[in-house]
């Protein structure tokens, strides 16, 4: 007899890696075919579980990079040296391999283009990943819907080579409803004319929406960046309820 599905209860499933793409020297995207995948919301994550032969388990959460409209699930993983999970996902896993996942997960750091109103996305490093799902979701909406939900992205990376999804972001920025600003904090090309410092109050004020437009704001990245940006946004007059954060921990 079929067991009634309990809403929200998530089973572990074995996904299959169908594509691997190098994004930067430290990050790569795994595209997964997940059996019985129920469409995610932009901003959600999956849990990934690795089990060693001796039964030792390591579990991590990874944000989904693909749009809800896509049938497969893309995860972009940044390699953290000497960590337990990310080196395996970045260096070892191959097309055709299986990977245990459960998801989609999370009802807090999510956005739907039908919510309308301006959107401000603030990313640090691999914090761009869940925000990319939002941008891709936005790009798939009809023109009137996109026009109702104009997006500004402020993305801080260490160097030009560390900018994930660089070419796609350049393409997305061609849209009149998408504005992309990249800030490089360590190294920049000789001809770089953009920001060359960490995210600060002036940068948030210049690249985001004024508080009077009551944008929805999503901030994702390393904990110190997220907490600093969130405090500055509130100081700029944004309602804390509209500033949603996702901190990426150092474990990987």
């Amino acid at each position: 007899m079929a067991r009634a599905a309990i809403p929200g209860r998530l089973d572990w499933r074995v996904a299959t890696v169908v594509d691997v793409r190098t994004e930067t020297p430290r990050a790569r995207t795994l595209t997964l075919d997940v059996p019985d995948w129920s469409a995610h919301k932009a901003g959600q994550h999956v849990d990934v579980r690795l089990v060693a032969e001796d039964g030792y388990q390591a579990q991590r959460s990874y944000s989904i990079a693909s749009a809800p409209e896509e049938s497969s699930v893309a995860l972009t993983i940044e390699r953290i040296d000497a960590a337990e999970v990310s080196p395996y996902l970045c260096d070892v896993l191959r097309v055709g391999d299986g990977l245990e996942v459960r998801g989609p997960i999370g009802g807090y750091f999510v956005w739907d283009v039908m919510q309308a109103g301006p959107l401000f996305l603030v990313a640090g490093g691999s914090g761009i990943v869940p925000l990319m799902a939002m941008l891709r979701h936005h790009a798939r909406a009809s023109e009137p819907t996109r026009a109702e939900a104009p997006v500004k992205l402020l993305y801080s990376a260490r160097s030009w080579d560390d900018v994930i999804y660089r070419e796609e972001l350049e393409r997305l920025a061609d849209s009149p409803y998408v504005d992309v600003t990249i800030a490089l904090t360590r190294d920049a090309p000789a001809d770089w004319r953009g920001h060359r410092r960490r995210i600060d109050r002036a940068m948030l004020e210049e690249t985001g929406w004024p508080a009077s437009r009551t944008p929805r704001i999503f901030v994702c990245g390393p904990t110190p960046l997220v907490e600093s940006a969130a405090s500055l946004l509130v100081a700029l007059g944004h309602d804390p309820v509209h500033v949603r954060t996702e901190r990426f921990g150092p474990t990987g």
Binding site: R9, H45, S61, R102, Y108, T223, T245, R247
Partner: peptide
């Protein structure tokens, strides 16, 4: 040290909370 960096959001443990609650409580 590291205590600040180790701090994450409730959102990050949504999967573990699903071991306890029958629904996703991150939006509760």
């Amino acid at each position: 040290m590291q205590t600040e960096e180790m701090r994450l959001d409730g959102n990050a443990v949504a999967g573990s909370l699903l071991d306890v609650f029958a629904v996703d409580v991150t939006a509760a």
